[in-house]
Amino acid sequence: MKNHQYLKDNDPRFHWLGWRVGVFALGIAILIITLLAVLAERQGLFNAKDRLHFVAESGAGLTPGMQVRLSGFRIGVVDEVALNEQAKVDVELLIEQRYMKWIKTDSIAILQQDGLIGDHFIEISGGGAKTPAMQEGGVLSFAPALGIADIALDLRNRTMPIFESVQQTLDYINDPKGDLRQTVQNVQQLTAEVRQTREKLDQILVHTDTLLDGEARQTLRSADQLLQRADQIASEVAQRTPQLLTQTASLVATANAIAQDASATMSQVRRVTEQAAPQIPGLVRNTDGLVRRSEQTLRAVQQIWPLSRTIEQAPVVVPAPESR
């Protein structure tokens, strides 16, 4: 029968076994704690922090834990996002004290996003060099970042009233039954009548010496009537002219207001374009890269079985000539 060799309690390998396991576990625990401490230090948990505050109209994109950045560097986190009594959003920020000197009382907190589909973060920007630094508990101004769709909508909202106003004014001017066209027509008519009256008077004066006495009287009566008529016309013109001038003045004022609106909009457009311009090359580059990667991915997918059997890759060939 075979004798088995069992380990015995007094085997030298079991000496101080409890201590050895303890030391090993302690070593692991120290390693984990050190690792956690390093991570916490990196996350800035041991740095002294100051609390800042701002109020946003909407909580969209704002979440506790999101980064707060200054010139691209992480300087703190969003601690709390809560709805207040006015149905607005109170946002509490925790900022590391060492960075507080760069946050001024006129600094602005802007909601930004990494790339097109990246995480949101709060960017602190602005602030004059001579403006005092913000103290603990200070309140920042908040500006939600405008997306391309928001910018387009904003521009549309600003320009549409101008176009409508221009359209209405043109409609008003072109309306054949409108006050302006009617007044101009009336004035033209009255002017023509005055001209006719004057021509008749001239004719009468020329022929006065050849007229007989009776005819002269009749002619004078007729001339008197004509003069009365001319007087009426002149008074009518005098009545209507201020009205026309008033309407013209209001038209000029409207045109002026439209021009001012257009000028303001153009400056807004210019400002938005200037802000967006530095981002455009990056966006185009990103899009280009995205398209290239999509093509690579599609090409790779097409080569995976069983797609490689079903989708035939068109060969790169010389374009076939046609005789016509």
Partner: peptide, 9 residues
């Protein structure tokens, strides 16, 4: 197996 056996891209 067939998928893994397809030609590497």
């Amino acid at each position: 197996v067939a998928a893994c056996a397809s030609k590497p891209v």
